[in-house]
């Protein structure tokens, strides 16, 4: 019997996120990211998941939202996959996940120029772990060298482990909750959940296709799968190009 195709992605509830940044830290730990040198700063660190803070001012009222941004796993004309000269970016038709093949990456950074979300990071330094950190490396995730590009892989290592366990039990499909990415697992407010957009039986499927759901930069036509939720109108329009003209305040958490 053929396995069903999936479109795994993240469902992020912006009305719950308080910008604590636990997801960002958990992602770095899961992905074996080394501690960057002091001079790296936010511009040169490996940050597969970052949290942006957007402030909205309208007529004396001030509101803010924290937006976790990672690879949006675009499904159609994936910008990074189309431009990589070495085919080092792979869109897996079975899971819908866009992965970076770090062992093939040349480090030309063309994909980073193509990504509209700036979701990719480059290893400007040689990643190094001191002995205690080296003992905590996640076994399912490869370590990278300097000079290669990396990004969120939707915790593909975790998916592989869950898939193997299910295969040992003779199942071809995963139960809900068997595969949880690190960011979803660590969020104290449950703002980040995994959803299979192609599975109507998925418990989060309703939310993902509901009124509060939106994607960032839908207008580019790349079909990003990462789905954000918010009841607030202005939040659903933070990627509106009309916002370019308005003053806005941004800082990185």
């Amino acid at each position: 019997m053929e396995a069903r195709r999936h479109r795994y992605t993240l469902l992020i509830d912006l009305d719950r996120c308080d910008g604590c940044g636990a997801c960002s830290v958990a992602c770095a730990i899961e992905n074996n990211c080394a501690v960057p040198p002091a001079e790296a700063g936010p511009r040169k660190s490996i940050l597969p998941l970052r949290v942006d803070r957007v402030v909205h001012q309208q007529g004396g009222e001030v509101d803010e939202v924290f937006v976790p941004i990672m690879c949006q796993h675009c499904q159609h004309h994936t910008p990074c996959a189309m431009v990589c000269p070495q085919t080092a970016v792979d869109l897996d038709p079975e899971t819908g996940v866009v992965s970076q093949v770090v062992d093939r990456c040349l480090g030309c950074r063309y994909c980073m120029a193509a990504c509209p979300y700036h979701a990719r990071s480059f290893n400007w330094w040689r990643p190094e772990w001191d002995t205690s950190l080296a003992r905590h490396l996640a076994p399912d995730v490869p370590v990278r060298q300097r000079g290669v590009v990396e990004k969120c892989n939707l915790c593909h290592g975790r998916w592989q482990r869950a898939y193997d366990r299910a295969a040992e039990e003779g199942r071809r499909e995963l139960e809900p909750g068997e595969f949880v990415p690190a960011c979803g697992e660590s969020c104290p407010r449950g703002a980040i959940r995994l959803v299979d957009l192609d599975d109507p039986g998925d418990p989060n499927h309703g939310d993902a296709h509901g009124d509060r759901a939106f994607h960032l930069l839908d207008r580019l036509g790349t079909e990003p799968t990462v789905t954000y939720l918010s009841a607030r109108d202005w939040v659903r329009r933070i990627d509106d190009p009309a916002c370019f003209d308005r003053d806005r305040e941004v800082s990185h958490a």
Binding site: M82, V83, C84, P85, Q86, T87, A88, R104, C105, L106, G107, C108, R109, Y110, F122, N123, Q145, R146, G147, V148, V149
Partner: peptide
């Protein structure tokens, strides 16, 4: 010097992405 892994430059010739402008340039 600009690419992160110059020793991998031959990958473009062995695994070319024919839809990529940069592969064509290479």
């Amino acid at each position: 010097v600009d690419v992160g892994q110059p020793l991998r430059a031959w990958f473009t010739f062995w695994h070319p992405n024919v839809h990529s402008m940069l592969a064509e340039v290479t």
